[in-house]
């Protein structure tokens, strides 16, 4: 849990800040052209909380944790440490896989909320520097168009992304055969495989949540 959490904290903070600042800078020009600069906070909040925050956070974590878990379990496999657990009747699956998958399921949503917060803070800082926007107005406008169900669904879906990263990386690590080269390949496949599955399942989850909760704009 600690391994999943503490270092990823810094990583997601940087991700969040970059997302917020860049998104605000990019959008401002366009919105000004349409005379809609006032809705910038709405737009930022919607895109960060509903899509960019969860997906970016999950992809960044897939890179870090997918490679880490894939390589760690893979090297335990090729050095017979997993066999050693099994022979000692210590149920390696429970011991290694369940703990890691659970940690991912719990940490992904928490870190996503954190990334969202930092991203909106970054967006506000940009707005303040560019147009001296008052933070009360920013917050009020930002939360105007967000529904609680949006925050809930789009944050909790990252728990599922965490599940994907955990399961895919553990599986690829567990099934390595060979030596260090194969361990490296397993780590790489864990990152690529879980990233692709995250993007794919995101499409499906968004589709389903629209059917269940309706479109955010409506």
């Amino acid at each position: 849990m600690d391994e999943v959490g503490s270092k990823s904290f810094i990583l997601t903070s940087i991700t969040g800040l970059a997302i917020g600042v860049v998104l605000a800078m990019q959008s401002r020009g366009t919105l000004i052209r349409f005379g809609a600069e006032a809705v910038l906070p709405n737009m930022l909040a919607l895109s960060v909380v509903k899509e960019i925050g969860p997906v970016f956070t999950s992809l960044v974590l897939a890179g870090r944790l997918g490679a880490g878990i894939g390589a760690e379990i893979g090297s335990m496999r090729v050095t017979e440490q997993i066999d050693a657990l099994e022979v000692a009747a210590l149920k390696p699956f429970h011991f290694l896989v369940i703990t890691r998958v659970l940690a991912c399921i719990i940490m992904f949503p928490i870190l996503t909320l954190w990334t969202d917060t930092i991203a909106l803070t970054g967006g506000y800082m940009e707005s303040y520097l560019a147009s001296g926007m008052d933070y009360r107005i920013f917050i009020a406008t930002a939360f105007e168009s967000l529904r609680f169900s949006d925050i809930l669904v789009d944050t909790l879906k990252t728990g599922f992304f965490g599940f994907i990263v955990g399961i895919v990386s553990c599986y690829l690590g567990f099934t390595v055969r060979g030596g260090t080269r194969e361990v490296g390949q397993a780590a790489m496949r864990a990152v690529v495989g879980s990233s692709l599955l995250i993007l794919l399942s995101d499409v499906i989850i968004v589709r389903i949540s629209m059917l269940l909760f309706g479109d955010a704009g409506s």
Binding site: T79, E80, Q81, D83, A84, V87, A88, A89, K91
Partner: peptide, 19 residues
């Protein structure tokens, strides 16, 4: 099987110590 394994010790080719 786990019960039986408690009566068996296994020295792995690579040692397999938890690093």
């Amino acid at each position: 099987l786990d019960q039986l394994r408690l009566s068996i010790g296994y020295l792995f080719q690579s040692g397999a110590l938890f690093d």
